[in-house]
């Protein structure tokens, strides 16, 4: 394989942004792109033919290019990474077009690469926007607000700054149940960290002893919210079809207002005593 015509990518968001910056600064994409995990397969097994065949200088990512690249291109690269869809080749082709056309490259609607990117970016942005509203937080045993989400795309990194603004100096945690990881923001102790979530007997958390219940919030405020949600609807205007369109069923499992809270059952048998006090009577 000709190393100069082959670019490799470690699978990270930063890596993809770096590649897009490189395609933009050189005006050309790679002939082959080694995708994440490509090195473990056969020599050409995971390499893909790219649009551009002109030779390029094989040089590391230029940090200045990342800073100077069009903002729209950087944002597009991040969304493509979040989507997990195999559109890296299309991204690099559009990035290379940006070199000569500038922002006008994003107006080339007859370009199939751009259309593929635009459709995906739209879907990711819509998911981000919806989850900014549909995330529901409740207080964990550790005193940290947390929201459990099941996003179609890996959008948690795009949501964190939005919730940092909302929470101010309060710590919070976003959990991706599909990808088993969470992002914790605790400005007082440590700005932001991403950790693998641990599942244990129906709870999910960063460690077994900080397990969080991702079931609907049974608290008093949640009950008040359900009452409000029910009272604010105007039955004379009911339009369930429109509601389904704007709030697809797949989001409802984590929404407090749609949660089916089981009625309180009869009190269970008393558990083992945890008191350290001595029994009242000597036995």
């Amino acid at each position: 394989m000709n190393a100069e015509k082959t670019w490799s990518w470690d699978g990270s968001a930063e890596g993809l942004v770096g590649l897009a910056a490189r395609a933009w600064s050189t005006g050309c994409g790679p002939e082959y792109l080694l995708k994440p995990g490509g090195a473990s397969g056969g020599l050409f097994e995971d390499a893909e033919q790219a649009q551009c065949s002109s030779p390029i200088e094989d040089r590391p990512v230029d940090p200045e290019a990342v800073l100077r690249m069009p903002r729209r291109l950087r944002s597009c690269a991040l969304r493509i990474w979040m989507s997990g869809r195999p559109l890296e080749k299309a991204l690099l082709a559009v990035a290379a077009r940006c070199r000569t056309l500038g922002e006008s490259a994003f107006s080339e609607w007859d370009n199939p690469d751009l259309r593929a990117l635009a459709a995906t970016v739209r879907a990711v942005v819509l998911e981000e926007h919806r989850l900014k509203g549909f995330a529901r937080f409740s207080m964990g045993r550790d005193g940290i607000w947390r929201a459990c989400l099941e996003p179609d795309f890996d959008v948690l990194p795009a949501l964190v700054s939005h919730f940092e603004e909302r929470f101010g100096e309060e710590p919070f945690m976003l959990v991706d149940l599909k990808r088993d990881y969470c992002i914790i923001s605790d400005p007082e102790r440590i700005p932001r960290r991403t950790v693998k979530a641990v599942r244990k007997s129906g709870t999910v958390g960063v460690a077994p002893d900080t397990g969080m219940n991702c079931e609907p919030d049974p608290g008093e405020e949640a009950a008040l919210w359900r009452r409000y949600f029910s009272a604010t609807e105007n039955p004379a205007r009911r339009n369930s079809e429109l509601q389904r369109k704007l709030l697809p069923m797949r989001y409802r499992s984590t929404l407090t207002e749609f949660a089916r809270i089981p009625p309180p059952g009869p009190p269970g048998p008393p558990g083992p005593s945890t008191s350290l006090d001595p029994p009242d009577s000597a036995e």
């Binding site: 926007h129 900014k132 509203g133 549909f134 949600f229 604010t232 609807e233 105007n234 039955p235 205007r237 009911r238 339009n239 369930s240 079809e241 429109l242 509601q243 369109k245 704007l246 709030l247 929404l255 207002e257």
Partner: peptide
């Protein structure tokens, strides 16, 4: 930001 949609489809 819309946080939910009621049965009448309103944000």
């Amino acid at each position: 930001v819309c946080h939910s949609f009621t049965g009448d489809g309103r944000c």
